[in-house]
Amino acid sequence: MSNKGLRLLDFEGVTFNYQNQSAPAVKGCTFNIREGEFVSLVGHNSSGKSTIAKLSNGLLQPKEGQVCVYGIPTTDQERLIEIRANVGLVFQNPDNQTVASLVEDDVAFGPENLNLPPEEIRKRVDEALSIVGLLHLLKHPVHHLSGGQKQLVAIAGILAIKPKLLILDEATSLIDPKGRKQVLEKIKHLHKDGYAIVMITHRMEEVLLSERSIALEKGNIIFDGKPEDLFSNPPLLARAGLERPPLVQLVESLSGNGINVPFPKDENELVEALCRLK
């Protein structure tokens, strides 16, 4: 797709079957993610999105095909740590990702697993927390934080292992709108700072943030391309489990009435585009 940087994550003809399940959860999937890309992964419930996430860092191993991170197959047990340090996974429920009571201890968990010296751990913890803007909560108990803050701590915990790719598996679905906005804001910044992002989501406004969208249906990739192309194809959109967002509907009805604007990323861009019209 885009020609950004090095190939970071490679899926080649990957098929995966859970035990005691007749139909495979993921069927012959091929795609790759490059450094610095921002990809959204969409699909109905049970379409295999989480399975793809877990295949990406070797939590699950493909039955057929191969998953590689920077060319290293995830089946290489010797280099599993290297793979996981490059591909960070953030899950849905922040409560189930927190291992320690205090913010700084939780963020330190990853670097501690990498057996880094205490000074280096300290540095990484402070860095990660200042990236997500929670450095002032260093010594706070995690369970006193808001949902959005908890998820930011989970993201900091992943940033502390210094990954190149962040996969967020419906990471904003359990938190309140305010917290969600906070988290999305940080994700946008991370992308600007050069992290590759894969955002698994049901939400249109989150898909709109991405530069590329991959849609799954029953374990098959049914679309891989620009979000705009996905949105302008209603049957495909329905198969991907997404409704057309109000913004897209507005732009389309505008163009239906002869007002053509370039496809906007958010409301502000639309407003600006409209203002520039004569």
Binding site: I81, R84, L89, V99, G110, N113
Partner: peptide, 15 residues
């Protein structure tokens, strides 16, 4: 899953 994703491996030395 979250612990393994953060490079935890049972029995490995941790700092």
């Amino acid at each position: 899953d979250a612990m393994e994703s953060r490079c935890f491996i049972t029995g490995e030395k941790r700092s």
